[in-house]
Nucleic acid binder design. Structure first.
Length: 332
DNA sequence: TACAGGATGTT
DNA sequence: AACATCCTGTA
């Protein structure tokens, strides 16, 4: 299949991988009632993609936008996979359209959050893409990225949603970059987490430092393959089996101590993990022993468009002053 | 240093 | 509304 018609009025050639952002923009410019059969299918794929739902169960139902809108909610949810989510999304699109919001076409493209937030976003006329991310979504993204989980943040019990912040300084700094708040600290981030207790999104796990519990988890949560219990070779192979190609190449870069940019939430950042061995002279009452301490050191870099990065100093983290050339930029 | 939560400002 | 900032106080 080399191309598909996605709109009733216009013919657009699209790749089999999905729609480009400009193609999506065109789709959302057209009222849902005027979508073609392929337009409806493209919309379904897009939404499932945005909500991390399994797109493989989707198939072209060969109904156009008009027929789609004529379905009752019950009928809709019965016939269409993930019907509850798609229904909510469709209602969202229709409502925004009729409320005469000039920015509406953008919203169909940035729905990376949970369903309840869609309605609220509909009423936020000046919400930019960089602003649409909540802290809990950001943390969930980090927990699903092998570059940040488990080194910066990890599950203590994924089934219970219990996680721990391993490197508060780095995570807080990344969140600050994401929100364009360079002064962000764990003091501030922690206050936001405490607000989440009140809202019922998180719960503090009492007695455990830096440990919180999600009270709700998204379906199809990606599980980062364990990095601790296997060799580097297995690690990379495991990642290759379980993750899309772009991610396994990123994991490989980490294993090889290469600098590699983060793509989740913070595309302008890079992390470098390095295992350093230091001799540690520890004193017992009787003997003095030297012990090799293997420690994972994390360096954080900021990317420029040329791929040259400078290290960010997260005091008292170690600093490298020389600029580093990025070997590979993200494919995704 | 982590943590609880009040007060107030910002977007 | 969802933080960000600042702060008082506790452990």
């Amino acid at each position: 299949m080399s191309g598909t018609t996605i709109l009733t009025e216009e013919v657009e050639v699209i790749s089999t991988d999905g729609l480009s952002s400009s193609e999506l923009a065109k789709l959302f410019l057209i009222p849902p009632s005027r979508w073609s059969e392929d337009g409806v299918f493209a919309w379904m794929q897009h939404v499932c993609d945005q909500f991390d739902l399994d797109t493989s169960t989707l198939k072209n139902l060969h109904i156009n936008g008009k027929e789609l809108q004529m379905l009752s909610q019950t009928e809709f949810e019965k016939r269409i996979p993930f019907g509850n989510i798609l229904w909510a999304h469709l209602q969202f699109l229709i409502t925004c359209r009729t409320s005469d919001n000039p920015e509406l076409t953008k919203y169909g493209m940035v729905n990376k959050a949970v369903i309840p937030s869609i309605k609220r976003r509909c009423n936020e006329p000046h919400n930019s893409a960089g602003n649409c991310y909540y802290l809990y979504e950001f943390l969930l993204a980090l927990l699903q990225d092998p570059l940040t989980c488990p080194h910066l943040i990890r599950w203590l019990d994924i089934k219970l949603g219990v996680f721990k912040l391993m490197k508060t300084k780095v995570v807080s700094w990344m969140w600050g970059q994401h929100k364009k708040k360079p002064e962000m600290s764990y003091e501030t981030l922690g206050r936001s987490l405490r607000y989440y207790s009140q809202k019922g999104i998180l719960r503090k796990v009492i007695g455990y430092h830096l440990t919180y519990q999600f009270r709700f988890l998204p379906k199809n949560l990606k599980v980062v393959p364990s990095l601790e219990k296997c060799s580097e070779e297995q690690e990379i192979q495991g990642a290759r089996d379980e993750w899309p190609p772009c991610l396994s190449s990123r994991l490989k870069a980490v294993a090889l101590n290469e600098v590699f940019p983060l793509s989740v939430g913070t595309p302008n950042l890079a992390l470098l993990y390095k295992t350093v061995t230091t001799a540690n002279a520890s004193q017992n009452t009787r003997h003095e022993t030297t012990q090799d301490i293997r420690q994972k050191v994390i360096h954080v870099f900021k990317l420029s468009p040329q791929g040259v990065v400078s290290e960010v100093q997260l005091s008292p983290e170690p600093q490298i002053s020389r600029p580093v050339k990025i070997l590979r930029l993200s494919n995704d």
